[in-house]
């Protein structure tokens, strides 16, 4: 009940504004210390993380994990799931995957979604989304690209981060750094462990906007415990058809990291 009234308050607050889309791949944990904790559940969504709006998500084109230099296709593990969003009061589709980590080493999960048609922006959106889960003390691979059309390659180890830590990354497009890339940063406003929703005092607090340097390198210090999404957008050098007309495609390089309070 208390939760509902908070959500209602949020809705009033957000009703007139529209924000950044984010592909999301959120694992049940970012660190697997022992085989006992190796059963992961991952949620794959397309959403506005701060306002908790969900977009209808079609089954991704690709979903997999890169570990110890090898790629494992996990597309068949995806289960279609529905969740009700309060505003608008509609049911939205997202995807779940159960995955058991078998060996030590960094596991970078990646999603390539189907292009999403966004009439409000008159373009398609494709967010290449990644998250890294550490397993059993072997910290190798988190600094390696997966080889996506565009992606964020971390320069900070992307797990075991404290609240307030700086997250640094490099935005890549076709394997090359993107100079002065614009990166949107949002907090996933549903973190159960915090127990309450964040209420941004004004619109610019919802999506933080930073720019990379000439080498595509960016930094952001995360002020709260929970999941943080980083999204760098580029325009694709290819187009897609919508109702017989060629339309542009926004491609996003999205990376998620988790922070914990130091207490």
């Amino acid at each position: 009940m208390r939760c509902l009234s908070v959500v209602f308050g949020l809705l009033l607050f957000f009703s007139s504004v529209s924000f950044a889309h984010f592909g999301a791949v959120i694992p049940s944990t970012d660190i697997v210390p022992t085989p006992d904790a190796a059963a992961l559940q991952l949620e794959i969504k397309f959403m506005h993380p701060m306002e908790l709006h969900y977009m209808e998500m079609a089954k991704p084109k690709e979903f997999g994990v890169v570990t110890r230099g090898g790629k494992i296709d996990l597309l068949d593990s995806l289960q279609e799931t529905k969740r009700e969003c309060i505003d608008p009061k509609q049911t939205f589709t997202y995807w779940l995957s159960d995955y058991k980590i078998k060996r030590p080493g960094d596991h970078t999960f990646y999603v390539i979604p189907q292009p999403y048609w966004e009439p409000a922006e008159d373009l398609f959106i494709v967010h290449y989304t990644k998250v890294t889960v550490a397993a059993m003390g072997l910290e190798d691979g988190w600094d390696q690209p997966v080889g996506l059309e565009t992606e964020i390659v971390p320069l900070s180890r992307p797990y075991g981060l404290w609240t307030g830590n700086l997250f640094s990354g490099q935005v890549m497009l076709h394997g090359k750094p993107v100079p002065y890339a614009e990166i949107e940063v949002e907090y996933l406003n549903e973190t159960a462990e915090i127990g309450e929703f964040v209420k941004p005092p004004a619109d610019p607090f919802i999506t933080q906007v930073i720019k990379s340097d000439g080498n595509g390198v960016f930094h952001y210090a995360m002020p709260r415990a929970g999941w943080w999404g980083f999204s760098a957008l580029s325009e694709a050098d290819w187009q897609l058809e919508h109702d017989g007309e060629k339309k542009g495609v926004e491609i996003g390089a999205v990376f998620w990291v988790h922070t914990r309070d130091m207490d």
Binding site: P104, G105, G137, L138, E139, D140
Partner: peptide
Amino acid sequence: TESYFADG
């Protein structure tokens, strides 16, 4: 068994 340092 496999024994390793954090960096691999």
